[in-house]
Amino acid sequence: MQITINGETRSLAEGLDVAGLVAELGLTPDGIAVAVDHAVVARGRWQGRTLDDGAQVEIVTAMQGG
């Protein structure tokens, strides 16, 4: 399936959920937020929130600074 992550189209395995995507991208779950098709997905729902072909995913990383 193909999904768009932060504006970049990628091919991924069917049936992947948000938790699996975060792991596949090598990201640490702490300090990030994920939205699928313009709706934020609570971290407690990452497992089981499968991604559909054509999904639009935005991953935002919290940063310190000022």
Rank of each mutant, 00 (worst) to 15 (best):
M1D: 08
L21C: 05
V60R: 02
R49K: 11
Q47P: 14
S11M: 12
L27M: 14
G31T: 03
G44Q: 07
A39H: 12
D17I: 04
L51W: 03
T61C: 00
M63F: 09
V36M: 08
H38F: 13
T61F: 01
A39W: 04
A13C: 08
Q56N: 10
G44Y: 09
E58M: 04
R43L: 07
D37I: 07
G20E: 10
G65F: 04
T4W: 02
G7S: 09
T9A: 14
G44L: 08
A33S: 12
G48S: 07
E24Y: 04
G66W: 06
E14S: 15
A39Q: 14
A62I: 03
V57T: 00
A62P: 01
V18A: 10
A35K: 09
G7Y: 01
L16F: 07
I3T: 08
G7C: 10
V34R: 02
E24M: 12
V60M: 06
V41S: 05
A55Q: 02
A13V: 13
G65M: 02
G15E: 11
D30T: 11
A42H: 11
G26T: 05
V36W: 08
A55E: 03
D52W: 00
Q56I: 01
G15C: 09
I32W: 01
A23R: 12
G66S: 02
D30Q: 15
V57H: 00
V22E: 00
R45H: 14
S11C: 07
E58W: 03
Q47I: 12
D37E: 15
T4G: 02
D53H: 14
L12N: 05
L12E: 12
L16Q: 13
T28R: 11
T9W: 06
V36D: 02
W46F: 04
Q47N: 13
I3E: 11
D30K: 15
Q56R: 14
G31A: 06
V60F: 04
D17F: 06
T50G: 06
G7P: 00
L12C: 12
V57M: 01
I5H: 03
Q2S: 13
V34K: 02
D53M: 06
G15S: 12
L21V: 08
Q64Y: 04
I3S: 10
G31V: 03
V22M: 01
E8V: 15
V22W: 00
D30I: 04
V41E: 03
E24G: 15
V18G: 07
T50R: 06
T9N: 11
L12A: 13
Q56L: 10
V41I: 15
A39R: 14
Q56G: 06
E58T: 03
